[in-house]
Nucleic acid binder design. Structure first.
Lengths: 248, 248
DNA sequence: TTGCCGCCATGACCAGGATCAAAAATTTCG
DNA sequence: CGAAATTTTTGATCCTGGTCATGGCGGCAA
């Protein structure tokens, strides 16, 4: 038992099998994101996967590069982004364990991806993956489910940025992070933000100043409390736009 | 020959087979959107499809409804949107021939969809479609390609709305429409806008007033010329942010 | 300890587009 | 054809969040 806990704290010692998290297309019990793959499917993917580790800040791929592999995150947080002409970054998504990194078209990656924290991931060579998917229709269907899940997430992100003000964007961002990386201590929820203000700003299409101001305005409102700049106490809110329940 | 032209103007007389348009994942010659399906695959889908016609303004589906079918557009334009608490509409995409309508999760449609023009589409029952995809891995792979294509389009839409000003948004919108519905008359490109200003506004996250103002500012710049409020002469521009080349 | 450097916070000012109000143009329909 | 309804346009004002500038905090190395 102590050993299991130790493994959880040190995932290096026993990497988990590949896993896809998403809300299923078909009617399921609760409509939450769940692991899609069964043991056999995870073993199948493990058969073509090699383990990759990235330190914080490492780039997994760059837009325009020839796409040779995709990654399945086991541990850590990855950001995907595009660079504009003037060097500004547009962060498209933060990805968590159970997500896939490496969207490509015409044989080339569409986005860049960088490790926000230390990351452990399975490297899936595209060549081998496509062969496996050809042979296993059920597995193929799961990848389709995952793509649809990410499409819905992108649509929610669009609505969030395009139609909501800074306060709502920041609240929903905190919600997103709290879903994936929060500890419940008594009745309080402690959320650790793994990325700097600039990343939050690039994801929410705000200036870093606006993110800072908004966070502090929320503290004055009593919605949250700072423990340190990267750690806040935050009680999840029910009064957020329903459009955005569920995210990935 | 005259008959063929007549058929093109009156698609009612000879509906085309189902078709999926997207940029392929694999390296392809030009990196443009192309029809993904071969004749056999189109016939396979036709085997489970029934033809559906919708007048302008008809609703194809509503968010939250039980998902029983998806549509493959043959002719016309469809908008997909979400409704906010206060009744405002967030238009997520305009869909054209070769596109799929009917994204669902947990057995229910995620978005609403409405015909912007008169629409002809193949109705594909989900039940039958999933069976067909199980039996035909290549077809399944094409649906995955299409989902990835739509995901990339959603990401471009996010960047467009979140990081570009009104002028750029309107220009790129005109580009989008010109891709799908323009006639080249001599050296001028005539673009017919099939939707009202409010729809353009809801898609670009602007007010209808801002859309109108921006269009007229572009006319004063000499970038376009109004023939009527819904018909403009517009020469495609090369100086737009490269992020947005290609759309669906 | 001290100084450097990256990250974060705060203040002052400005601008793009929203909002409110109302007129003009176009389409629909009797 | 003419009138109503809808769509589009224009004008005036306001406000959110961007930008620029400055200052504080904390970690790290010497």
């Amino acid at each position: 038992m102590a050993k299991i806990i130790r493994m959880k704290n040190h995932p290096a010692s026993a990497p988990a099998l590949p896993s896809l998290r998403a809300v299923p297309l078909r009617l399921s019990s609760n409509g939450q994101a769940v692991p899609l793959l069964d043991e056999a499917e995870r073993e199948t993917l493990a058969g073509i996967a090699t383990l990759a580790r990235f330190p914080r800040g490492a780039r997994l791929e760059a837009e325009g590069e020839r796409a040779v592999q995709i990654y399945n995150i086991i541990e850590g947080v990855v950001k995907t982004y595009r660079l504009s002409e003037d060097g500004a970054a547009y962060i498209l998504a933060f990805l968590f364990p159970g997500d896939l990194v490496g969207l490509y078209e015409n044989g080339r990656y569409v986005n860049s991806a960088e490790a926000v924290t230390a990351v452990v991931a399975h490297r899936l060579p595209i060549e081998a993956l496509e062969q496996v998917l050809q042979r296993d229709p059920a597995l193929n269907a799961h990848f389709l489910s995952k793509a649809c899940h990410d499409l819905r997430a992108a649509q929610r992100h669009t609505i969030l940025l395009a139609h909501h003000d800074a306060r709502t964007r920041v609240l929903l961002f905190l919600d997103l992070i709290a879903d994936h990386a929060s500890e419940i201590t008594g009745s309080r929820r402690i959320v650790a933000l793994p990325m700097p203000r600039t990343d939050i700003a690039d994801y929410l299409a705000l200036s870093p100043e606006a993110v800072s101001r908004t966070l502090h305005a929320l503290e004055h409102e009593g919605v949250l409390r700072f423990i340190s700049p990267r750690v806040i106490e935050f009680d999840r809110r029910d009064d957020l736009p329903s459009i955005h329940r569920q995210s990935g």
